Structure formats: C-alpha cells, structure tokens
Simulated assay, not measured.
Amino acid sequence: MASDLMTIVPVILSGGSGTRLWPVSKPEHPKQLLPLTADETMLQLTAVRTQGFDAASIGRPILVANIAHTDIIDEQLHQIGIDDYQVILEPIGRNTAPAIALAALEAQPDDALLVMPSDHVIADLPAFHAAMAHALPLVKKGWLVTFGITPDGPETGYGYIQMGQPCGDAVHEVVRFVEKPDFANAQTMLAEGYHVWNAGIFLFRADAYLAAMERHQPDMLTAVRTSMTQAKRDGAHVFPDAMAFHACPSDSIDYAIMEREAHVACVPVAMGWSDVGSWDSLHAISARDAGDNAVRGDALLLGARNCLVHSDGPRVTLVDVDDLIVVVSQGEIMILKRGESQKVRKVTEALKALAAATSSN
C-alpha cells in the first residue's frame, strides 16, 4: 500500500519532432527546446510545472527524450536550476506507451507518475494543481487518470474523451476515447456535454501502469523491460539497449492501454492549455497588439491586422495586409494565410521528397 503522502514523479515526454512549426522547429531542434511562448523554452516551462504543489511530495523528474538532444536538454535543465533528474534516451521513437513504460520501470512501484508532453502550454498552474489533487485519491487506489481540457469550441484538431458517472470529487469515469472528429461531430459532442479534449496528460502509479501493460501489451512490456535491464548508465543518462527497444511494438498510450483498461478516470479542467500545434495556435495564445498582431523578433507593422511575425534576425515589414503568418528562421522564409497553418505539413513533406530526390541523383 502507498503511504498517505504520495510521491509524484514528473515524467516529461520530449521525443517529438515538432515539424508543424517549421522552419523554426526542426527534428534536430524541435519546438519543446525553443522559447516560443516565453523567455524560457517549452521544456523548461514544463519542468517547473509542479513547483508549488503541496498535496504530494515531488520526486526527481524523469525525462524520456531523443538521444540526439542529450546535450541541449542537460544545458536547459541546468539553466533553470534543475540538477537532479534522470534522462532516458530512446535509441528510436516507439510512441508514448513504451516511452512511459521506460519511466515506470525507472521509478519506484508506488510512485505516482505525472506524465506530461514537453511542448504544451498551461497558463493557469493553480487550476492544474487543483486537478492533480482531485486525481490523487483514485491514483492511490490504482486507477489510471487522465486530464481533459474543457473545450471552448468545436475543435477538430484534438481527440476527445467522453466522461460518464462521477467516481470522485470532480472526477468522472471515462466512457470512451474519440478520434479527432470532423466539424459536425465536434459540434455534436460539444452540444451533448461531458466531452473534453484529450491533452495527453496522465497521473497513475508506476505499478498500475505496468500491470495494465502486462494485461494488454505483454510483448511491449517484455521488450521495454529487456531494454532497461540491459541499459547502460552514465550519471543522469540512461541508455536503453537499442536492439531490445527496436524490437518493441510502437503504439500510443491511448490505443495500447487507456482504451482497454476498466478503471480509467478523467478530471475535467480549464487551465489555459494549448498544444501549440501550429502557427495559428501560437498566434492565439501570444500577446497581441491593438491590431491583433503577434510579433516575436524585429518587425515593423503599418496598417497590418491579425498577423503573426516570427523572425530570428531580419526585420519583417508588413504594410496594409491582414491575416498573414510570416516566419523567418535559419535562412528559411515561409509566408502563408492565417487559418491554414496545418498546411505546413505539406511543406515538410515536400522538403523530404526534394531531399530524397537530390540524394538519389
């Protein structure tokens, strides 16, 4: 049995490539390692997110990251005064279910793992901490708890969680997880109520997660356990065995575990959350001038409205234009209409095809 005062171990998932924010975010330097929303990077903001939470003891954070980012992660954590941490460096990406299992095996069995993506924004930390406190009684009992974002519109870019009966104070049983819907289905779910956005933030005991994986994904657990048993260690760095981890099936925690488990609960919360998944979403959460323009870097805006400018050097001048996204980064320039930033994916795909064609010639 766990003691009354649980230890919460922050588990920060930092394996993403963030290509939807190209050209600023690239696989070798993805968005979580960039100062997109504040002077601190998104990883740094995530790492201090549990400060001030007093309903549980906060343990040493565990990061699960791409081995290529080792040095910059060390540097960024040291910059904010975090020197006691563990980084598990994946030899290859295998999605969130195995990544969390790596952390669960590194933690103590009765530790509560607070699983957080490293590239999200949470503006209202007291609301987040209150939601964590609501989750703890069920976490102690072995439930897997997720946090659902109270929706403010029929968003089609997020998955949804349908909540059912209350099973605690401000906590509901999960009825089902819903794939990213089309606009009509999003509107229907909003009208029905009891639907929240799936933020990919979780709280559960390490042993409860591993037991669920044993029930539903035994091959995955075997591969992850072998990779950790044979891992090499160097100070704060853990290097899972590459051959064993390559053999691990790839799947998300939602598909592999959460949708299959019986005791899954959701805490709905409005906490100023964004996944900063596009230039449009960055515009939405950024400070804006009287013309609703969001600017980072050197820019001169004359009569421009509803624009986003992000420049790492050259001055960008906009005159009497509306609804533009202009990004200047690392010698690349991208201009597109606001509201269409999901098309950045087309750019990164085209660049990959161009690079492949060039290398084959």
Rank of each mutant, 00 (worst) to 15 (best):
A99T: 07
E75C: 11
T50N: 08
P314H: 10
N95R: 15
G339C: 08
K346P: 01
I82P: 02
M243A: 14
A131G: 11
T96N: 01
G153H: 12
I88V: 14
D312R: 03
V327I: 15
H263T: 09
R296A: 14
V327F: 12
Q79C: 10
N361L: 12
G18N: 11
D320M: 08
T7W: 01
V264H: 00
A133Q: 13
H172M: 05
G313P: 01
V238D: 04
G142Y: 09
G193A: 09
A103S: 06
S14R: 06
A287G: 03
V9R: 10
R225Y: 03
R288K: 15
A231I: 03
T222Q: 15
A2H: 03
T50G: 04
A99P: 03
L89D: 02
S250V: 06
G157D: 13
R225S: 15
A135F: 01
A65N: 07
R288H: 08
T41E: 07
R338N: 06
T146K: 06
E179R: 14
P27L: 04
G291W: 01
K232E: 10
G339D: 03
A287H: 11
Q217A: 15
A199N: 05
D320E: 14
F147Q: 02
I122G: 03
L354P: 01
L105S: 06
A99K: 01
A287W: 06
Q165N: 12
Q108L: 14
H195L: 11
Q76V: 06
A135T: 02
Q51S: 12
L318R: 00
G303C: 12
A103K: 01
R233Q: 13
F53A: 05
Q76H: 14
Y255E: 10
E340N: 11
T19F: 07
A107T: 00
V295S: 00
I335P: 02
T50Y: 09
A103D: 00
S311H: 04
T46Y: 05
D275S: 15
H29S: 11
D169G: 05
R288S: 02
R338I: 07
L300T: 15
D275M: 09
K352F: 10
I122D: 01
D54E: 15
Q230V: 02
T46P: 04
I100R: 00
R225C: 05
V321A: 03
A287T: 14
V145L: 12
V145W: 00
G159D: 13
P91E: 00
D323A: 15
A186D: 08
L351W: 09
I73W: 08
A236K: 05
H69W: 02
A47S: 15
D289I: 11
T226S: 15
A135Y: 01
G59E: 02
D289T: 10
E259D: 04
H29D: 10
H237I: 01
G18Y: 11
W273E: 07
M42A: 07
G277P: 05
Q342A: 13
R305S: 14
D320G: 09
E214V: 09
K337H: 12
E179Q: 14
A284M: 09
D323F: 06
Q230H: 08
C248Q: 02
L282K: 00
G272Y: 02
D289R: 12
